[in-house]
């Protein structure tokens, strides 16, 4: 009887009032070792991938990385001058300068065991300056945001979770929209796009920076499906997330300059 009362109290407190943030954060710190142990087999495989190699395959990989590095360096040569130009032009337009964001590399130590929750556990927490609402990206695009921080780990909600939505804009023409998670890892749904909106298959959606949570310009998804049904008020637009949501092991936490100023 008492137990039932305690449970009802907990559920109400968590569901209606979000009162348990600090308690959760404390308890989550205690739960981290479990995730660490559960991650051991993968860690072992990573280790063997890293150290148990033939010299030949190492040499091959080295060469491949050299080539990739050369291409990236080539692309970034003009970056400095372009950035300076961008700052000058923005100054001419009287808009605030875009500043580069700092990132922190984190490693995945767990995924949510519940198929209806798209969450990740990463190995950075309060001690590294992680905060609730912090954007999380991987090499290809935006992954999600931090929803719970403990001392040494934190939990991130992916953009595909059914409870997540994110303001985006079409990279090609700046059309703004809201991308909602669908609960399936491979699809986002763009809500409330009128049938006449200029949006096409293959359009890249990037964060719009509206809402103040995600910094502007990170790739979010690519439009894969458009259905314009005259019988409905809005077109149905589905997009595939750019980030490798189910594969990335290393992720980046973004510290925007605004956050720094805010703190």
């Amino acid at each position: 009887m008492l137990a039932i009362l305690v449970i009802l109290g907990l559920i109400t407190a968590d569901l209606r009032y979000n009162r348990l943030e600090t308690t959760r954060s404390l308890l989550a710190t205690l739960g981290t070792p479990v995730y660490w142990v559960a991650d051991l087999p993968l860690r072992l495989r990573d280790w063997s991938d890293k150290y148990l190699h033939s010299p030949l395959s190492l040499a091959e990989e080295n060469e491949r990385l050299h080539r990739a590095n050369l291409i990236l360096q080539g692309r970034s040569q003009q970056m400095a001058s372009l950035q300076a130009e961008n700052v000058r032009l923005r100054a001419l337009l009287n808009s605030s300068a875009l500043l580069r964001d700092d990132v922190l590399v984190a490693e995945l130590i767990g995924v949510s065991p519940d198929p209806v929750r798209h969450q990740l556990v990463i190995n950075k927490g309060l001690a590294d300056g992680v905060f609730v609402g912090q954007p999380l990206i991987d090499a290809d695009g935006l992954m999600g945001q931090i929803v719970e921080v403990s001392a040494i780990s934190s939990r991130a909600l992916l953009i595909t979770d059914a409870t997540h939505s994110i303001p985006v804009q079409v990279n090609r023409n700046g059309v703004r929209a809201i991308a909602e998670g669908t609960g399936s890892l491979g699809a986002l749904e763009i809500r409330h796009v009128s049938a006449t909106t200029d949006i096409e298959l293959g359009d890249l959606l990037v964060t719009s920076g509206l809402g103040g949570r995600f910094p502007e310009g990170y790739p979010v998804a690519v439009v894969t499906e458009i259905e314009r049904d005259p019988g409905r008020a809005f077109a149905r637009v589905v997009a595939r997330p750019s980030a490798a949501l189910d594969r990335s092991r290393h992720v980046l936490l973004v510290f925007s300059t605004q956050d720094r100023r805010g703190n």
Partner: peptide, 13 residues
């Protein structure tokens, strides 16, 4: 609940 990131009380119940 803490481990799964579920609402506190779900698995407890």
């Amino acid at each position: 609940d803490i481990l799964e990131g579920a609402m506190l009380g779900q698995n407890a119940f």
